[in-house]
Write a protein that binds this DNA or RNA. Structure first.
Length: 422
DNA sequence: TCTGGGGTCCTAGGACCC
DNA sequence: TCTGGGGTCCTAGGACCC
């Protein structure tokens, strides 16, 4: 039997956070809205009971909310982030083997607590409530996928005291029988349709399906899913926090954007935020991508969406360089005459900045350096001295890493962009 | 008028090399 | 003149998650 894994999940996390500081919200339907107050991203149990769905657009739901006295809050991510850290630190008191999976969820190893798993879970639950005021549910099972099922069952079953243990096969069958395919962690609408098309209509049927067939028809993900449902772990706890592989900064516009200048301003702001995140995590990016789009919810309007990415000549976390590159990319995909609703910047191909040591400046005659200097001169003439100065800093820090890891092809990409830009 | 933002993993297919 | 096939790397796109 595999070691027990517990999934601790905060109940209606954002709504619970709002309640913490406004006790008068307790017992009432509460929803939290997304950026720009666009749509519902969290609901208290009372709000769920009213049939309010995740992602419901606020502007369509307003009358209903008014009718039922639903209390509405704009989101406050600083608050949620802070409370999340507090909850996680309490969980850390219970075990060092902790994987923080998302802002409101963590997987814990319960190894060593066999025989008193539920008692241990109840104590954990009480402690988190006492120390942070946030209610959590705990699901225990031999695999992560089953722990997800257990957590869901704990939330749903009345009288479960917020804890559900699915270490026994019979208990697993009972719980799985209560679920639809799309209740499983990793199965959404499209995959459910594909499963149904090969005769698998329930979680139990998926568990018992032929794994070779699953792999052949649907890929390795569903094969693992079946194994996990049988209690055979395919996903281990990830105890060390891995470096990010990409960083995104994007926003829907509060009001429609139609001019290139305004778009550039927005993208510059996004790039700045992304670069800040990058530096905070001590990383550098080698690739940058920019995207923009009109409002897809308005089918009567002419639609346009596009994206463009480029490999940077060096890995950098420098705001000026990244903004200069983003401006170049915008020139490529900008089309006049559309009503833009959203835009963003993505940083990719990230590497630890601390590994990056440079010796470019000690090799004054290196052809790569000359290549780069021409590029920088061009940047300089386009974006002013600042760009070059900052770019030089970036190169100094990252040249060696680039040379070791990449072919020199990137220089042509970079110059191609420079020569095409408008 | 008004529909979020930030991530990960897997796969297929093309480029390239030998 | 004949004109193969396997391995690897990279990218774009799909699907999913919170």
């Amino acid at each position: 039997m595999s070691a027990p894994i517990a999934l601790v999940d905060c109940n209606n996390f954002y709504a619970s956070c709002e309640r913490l500081f406004q006790p008068e919200l307790r017992g009432k339907p509460v929803v939290v809205l997304s950026n720009n107050d666009g749509c519902v991203i969290a609901r208290s149990n009372e709000a769920k009971a009213l049939g309010i769905g995740m992602g419901d657009p606020w502007h369509l739901s307003k009358p209903k909310f008014a009718r039922h006295g639903v209390i509405v809050r704009s989101s406050n991510y600083t608050l949620y982030g802070d409370l999340s850290r507090r909850v996680m630190s309490v969980l850390g008191e219970f075990t060092p083997d902790l994987e923080i999976y998302s802002i409101d969820e963590a997987f814990l190893s319960f190894q060593g607590f066999e025989g008193r798993l539920e008692r241990h879970a109840r104590q954990l639950r009480r402690t988190v409530m006492q120390w942070t005021g946030i209610p959590v549910s705990v699901g225990i099972a031999p695999t992560k996928t089953l722990a997800k099922v257990a957590n869901r069952t704990a939330k749903k079953r009345t009288g479960s005291d917020g804890v559900c243990c699915l270490m026994e096969e019979s208990a697993q069958v009972t719980a799985l029988n209560d679920l639809a395919l799309t209740d499983l962690w990793g199965v959404a609408g499209r995959m459910a349709s594909r499963l149904e098309s090969i005769g698998i209509g329930t979680p139990l049927q998926l568990r018992d399906a032929d794994t070779a067939l699953l792999r052949e028809r649907l890929g390795v993900v569903m094969e693992r899913m079946a194994l996990e449902l049988r209690g055979i772990p395919c996903h281990e706890l990830v105890l060390a926090i891995p470096d990010r592989k990409s960083i995104v900064a994007s926003r829907s516009f509060g009001r429609i954007v139609t001019s290139r200048d305004e778009m550039l301003e927005a993208l510059s702001a996004h790039t700045e935020r992304a670069a800040e995140k990058l530096r905070r995590q001590n990383l550098a990016a080698s690739q940058l991508s920019v995207f923009l789009m009109t409002n897809p919810f308005k089918p009567t309007e002419r639609q346009y969406s596009n994206s463009c990415s480029m490999r940077l000549p060096v890995a950098t976390a420098d705001t000026a360089v990244l903004i200069a590159a983003a401006a170049r990319l915008l020139n490529r995909i900008w089309r006049e005459g559309y009503r833009y609703k959203k835009a963003g910047v993505m940083l990719l191909d990230l590497a630890p900045a601390s590994v990056v040591q440079g010796d470019l400046w000690s090799e004054p005659d290196s052809p790569r350096r000359k290549d780069l200097m021409r590029t920088l001169d061009q940047l300089n003439s386009d974006f002013g001295r600042g760009a070059v100065r900052f770019a030089a800093t970036g190169i100094e820090q990252s040249w060696k890493l680039r040379c070791e890891q990449r072919s020199p092809r990137f220089t042509t990409d970079w110059r191609e962009i420079l020569s095409v830009g408008g």
